[in-house]
């Protein structure tokens, strides 16, 4: 209750007034819907079904959520379950785990997990490690808008354009190699595309802004008075970071890590365009795509998609569980 001195008296016995409206801070608790019509017919001892449903928050307005929710069920939940079931029905018949057995027996297939992790894990860690100090610095800036606008560009342009841009920029005739040669750092162009490094650099270009903006939103959510108190008590910047900010930041960092990892793990266009899709950057999404749209083996493709989702869930759950081990102070949402 937002304890005003005078709460309005409940209307009409008050059997529909409470618990229906979601409270908006600073507004009076008034039900936006009209009072229910008096129940017709005899009896009238208890509230009608409509009134009872409304007491639980179910009325005509609640039904507005249904079209959207049903759409997501039909085109997100159902395909996922369908894919799960399909993955247990191998194309050529046989054992229900045959697709998974195929995946884990063929090094060309199961190696993709290791190759994807070898790209995604360093990229994620590097992005987060770079984001934290930069966010710490940027939060003190008064005009952050220009920087955040520049950084949102690569996210908006998407991975395909970043891949095409890097092909030109990092290519043998691109400006990067031009600089290296002109300044005598290298005698001949360095190969930066169509290999592991091309994919890694594309994950940095499109991943760092994402990680940074996410980190920044968590950093600015920490109440600055906590740090001021630390400073007043004589803690230096490094100490304030380690003992005050970092513990408050850990829950947000865990989510940032999880989201950036999941993004990096599902790298697809840049692994094809900038990497060596037959060799070191044959990531798991390429394997799933090849199975589905080149071999037309949808059950195997579904199995690979499920394995991909499984690895992602495993890492995310591990990260969020690790977050629970660290102190979670109530002050982490100081900004409100």
């Amino acid at each position: 209750m937002n304890g005003g001195p005078e709460t309005p008296p409940p209307l009409e016995g008050g059997d529909w007034g409470e618990g229906v409206v979601r409270l908006v801070p600073g507004t009076a608790r008034i039900n936006p819907s009209p009072p229910p019509p008096p129940s017709r017919g005899g009896g009238g001892s208890g509230p009608s079904l409509r009134v009872r449903l409304r007491n639980r928050g179910l009325d005509g307005v609640t039904l507005l959520v249904l079209p959207g929710a049903l759409f997501v069920v039909a085109l997100f939940v159902y395909p996922f379950l369908y894919g799960l079931v399909l993955s247990f029905r191998p194309k050529d018949g046989g054992w229900f785990l045959a697709n998974y057995a195929t995946f884990f027996a063929d090094p060309f297939l199961y190696d993709t997990i290791g190759k994807t992790l070898a790209i995604a894990v360093p990229a994620t860690l590097l992005n987060v490690a770079l984001s934290v100090p930069v966010a710490m610095r940027v939060r003190l800036m008064r005009r952050q808008r220009l920087l955040t606008t520049i950084l949102v560009i690569p996210i908006t342009l998407g991975t395909v354009l970043v891949a095409e841009g890097l092909l030109t920029y990092l290519g043998p005739r691109g400006w990067v190699n031009r600089v290296l040669i002109e300044f005598g750092l290298s005698a001949h162009p360095i190969r930066l595309v169509h290999n592991y490094w091309g994919v890694m650099l594309s994950l940095l270009i499109s991943g760092f802004p994402f990680t940074f903006l996410l980190t920044l939103s968590y950093v600015t959510g920490i109440d600055p008075s906590l740090e001021n108190a630390g400073a007043m008590l004589g803690a230096r910047a490094a100490e304030r970071f380690r003992r005050i900010l970092l513990p408050l930041l850990v829950p947000g960092l865990a989510i940032t890590l999880a989201l950036s990892f999941v993004q990096a793990f599902s790298v697809f266009p840049s692994a094809v365009l900038l990497g060596a899709p037959a060799g070191p950057t044959r990531v798991i999404s390429i394997a799933a795509y090849t199975a589905a749209f080149e071999q037309y083996d949808y059950p195997l493709a579904s199995a690979i998609a499920m394995i991909m989702a499984g690895v992602q869930v495993l890492i995310v759950v591990a990260l969020l569980a690790a977050r629970g081990l660290v102190f979670r102070g109530p002050a982490s949402t100081g900004k409100g």
Partner: peptide
């Protein structure tokens, strides 16, 4: 539960659910 239903398509990367979705 409904909120989770709306959050999941934003958290799961498109390529992961895109392949089963395309199959359907």
């Amino acid at each position: 539960l409904i909120l989770l239903l709306f959050l999941l398509p934003l958290l799961v990367p498109p390529i992961t659910y895109g392949i089963p979705l395309a199959t359907v």
